[in-house]
């Protein structure tokens, strides 16, 4: 079976999940104890504003109609209007999305690249100092709370050493012309290395804090998966063919060893998204995580719904990508 057929099959399987998620997110607003309108309006409640909000949220209609309206709008990207800012929720999300994407992608990159390199080296140099230090690092890494790590990094690198900024995405007074909203990319588009450097310095600590737990886990899984694979018969065959040890490790073994690692990376993405909320809070990073935290604290339910649905959607999409990669790695899945 070709990869694209697998893709379509996989896509079809996603539909029920998507509908399930949308129902839960939709019901969120109805799970607020008491009257949602009262709670959202707080002290500002007047009869006129009550009616207006009820109308706007469509709360005066039967539940299934409400759901249908909400869902059909949501798939078009319309999550309603933020109560706090009166902006469309989707715009609020989109304006903060690049910050979160940049943070998570860089963190994921760090976790995956270094996780695999460290894990493979540990396996290749099993029972040596390299291996032991990797094991030590990963034991430490998985058990560190992001919050605490973030604080410690700020304390050490920003407060004591003064090497890196405490918070934000850019130094005050710098404005990078926006193209993608990803500052690293935009700085390169603008051809401005000092902006790039500044953005990178702001990104370093949050990305590293966010990456650590996943990095540690990927090291561990890669190491044990590599050790399993390296004792397989086909590895002996590769050596018997005259393949050099480096190629045995990085081609014959790694591609097999990646199969469980990819699963873990997929799972780590969910963790990274959760971790992003914490990290964004610690480092005042203006992303979706902070948007969500703020929205919850001021009971801006349309924004909460919008962000949660959006994140769930992103998560499903990422899972499909992970599965495709999985199928690419393992022909036995493709040909099932």
């Amino acid at each position: 079976m070709a990869l694209y057929k697998y893709f379509i099959k996989r896509l079809a399987l996603t539909l029920p999940t998507l509908i399930g998620v949308s129902i839960i997110v939709f019901l969120l607003i109805h799970m607020i104890p008491g009257d949602p309108v009262d709670i959202m309006l707080g002290d500002r409640v007047t009869d006129a504003s009550r009616l207006a909000l009820e109308e706007r949220l469509g709360l005066n209609q039967p539940l299934h109609i409400q759901y249908w309206n909400w869902f059909s709008n949501a798939v078009k990207g319309d999550f309603g209007i933020s109560i706090r800012s009166n902006q469309p929720v989707i715009e609020e999300i989109m304006s903060r999305l690049p910050a979160t994407v940049e943070l998570t992608v860089v963190a994921l990159f760090i976790a995956v690249v270094f996780g695999i390199i460290f894990g493979v080296s540990a396996a290749r140099y099993r029972n040596t100092t390299i291996d032991y230090s990797m094991i030590g690092f990963s034991l430490l890494g998985v058990s560190i709370p992001i919050f605490w790590l973030g604080m410690m990094l700020i304390f050490f690198f920003s407060v004591i050493l003064g090497w890196l900024p405490v918070s934000g995405r850019l130094a005050m007074g710098i404005a990078i012309p926006q193209v993608t909203g990803l500052y690293l990319v935009d700085a390169l588009f603008a051809g401005n290395i000092s902006y790039f450097w500044d953005a990178l310095k702001h990104l370093a600590l949050p990305a590293f804090s966010l990456a650590t737990v996943s990095l540690a886990l990927i090291v561990r899984v890669t190491r044990s998966s590599m050790l399993d694979v390296l004792s397989e018969d086909y590895i002996r065959t590769a050596r018997a063919k005259g393949v050099r040890e480096n190629k045995v490790v990085f081609t014959h073994a790694l591609k097999n060893a990646m199969i469980p690692v990819v699963t873990v990376i997929g799972l780590q993405l969910a963790k990274l998204m959760g971790g992003a909320i914490l990290t964004e809070t610690v480092f005042s990073w203006p992303g979706i995580g902070r948007l969500l935290v703020t929205a919850i604290s001021v009971r801006d339910y349309p924004v909460v719904q919008g962000v949660v649905f959006f994140v769930a959607f992103a998560f499903i999409a990422i899972n499909i990508v992970v599965d495709l990669f999985y199928a690419y790695l393992d022909p036995r899945i493709r040909y099932e």
């Binding site: 086909y234 590769a238 014959h252």
Partner: peptide
Amino acid sequence: RGNQISMIFQEPMTSLNPV
């Protein structure tokens, strides 16, 4: 190895790389 001296093994089911 694999050039002047070659070797084949007992377990054909697991001796080839599955990927």
